[in-house]
Amino acid sequence: MPDIDNRRPGWWTRFLEMPNDRPAKTLILTLTVAFMGAVLVTASAVLLRPLQIANKELDRSLHIEDLLRKLPRGGAGIVIEPRVVDLATGEYVPGIDASRFDQRQAAMEPTESVEVPAGTDIANLSRRARKAVVYVGSRYGKAELVILPVRGQGYGSMMYGYMGLAADANTVIGLSFYEHTETPGLGALIDTADWKAQWQGKLVSDGAVIRIGVGRGRIEPGSNEAAYQVDALTGATWTGAGVNNLLHYWLGPDGFGPYLAKFRERGR
């Protein structure tokens, strides 16, 4: 008995033979494509994440090495040691492994962080960790450099960076941002070598008030601001203001102020 002719075609064939514009087919095809796209994107993001995190860490440590290299003789002979600082008292906190301390994580833990009151929250932090990891660079036990982690709202998002200060806690060694999403070509110029180089040798305060920051337009050498301010970035007013705000916050009394006073006093 020939039964091949009246066999119904399989579901796959029936699907393929369905007119393309039938809503059911449109829906199935769209969902399938979207699902496969999602799987592809998720897989790549999850599988590659460990490598990406390692890259970020490496990049962050390169920024610290970069600051070190700006010291006289390229920072030869200087040993960098990470230390945990209590921001309120300005004292080093013993008993915490600084290399394991995660300041960003701490800023999110209710017990490990404090709310920044609206009046003083110029850098738009809303919460900050009670403790911070600073990097002290010393030669034969004498501190020559301290690197402070700073962050603050820019135009795109939070900008994360390091500020290096000399032993007087007032002369800038350098400022560099390792993570930000400022506009390429405008605000993102904050991590170009030319602009970063301007920070070297600037002074934080004149002894009474904090005057460091991004100026307005070009800062003429010899002007009142020349010792404290760097050139503005064209087309990046918000970014410049963000940099100013974060410097004023973190170098001020609510940030590293107490620590820097003690650092200057004890010389380490």
Binding site: L16, N20, D21, K25, T26, L29, T30, V33, A34, M36, G37, A38, L40, V41, S44, A45, L48, Q52
Partner: peptide, 24 residues
């Protein structure tokens, strides 16, 4: 099999998935 009325959306979905993978 491409439905004519949503073909551009499907094309862009495929392209953007590939771009995200390239970026990652």
């Amino acid at each position: 099999q491409m439905p004519k009325n949503v073909r551009l959306i499907i094309q862009i979905t495929i392209i953007s998935s590939l771009v995200i993978v390239a970026d990652q």
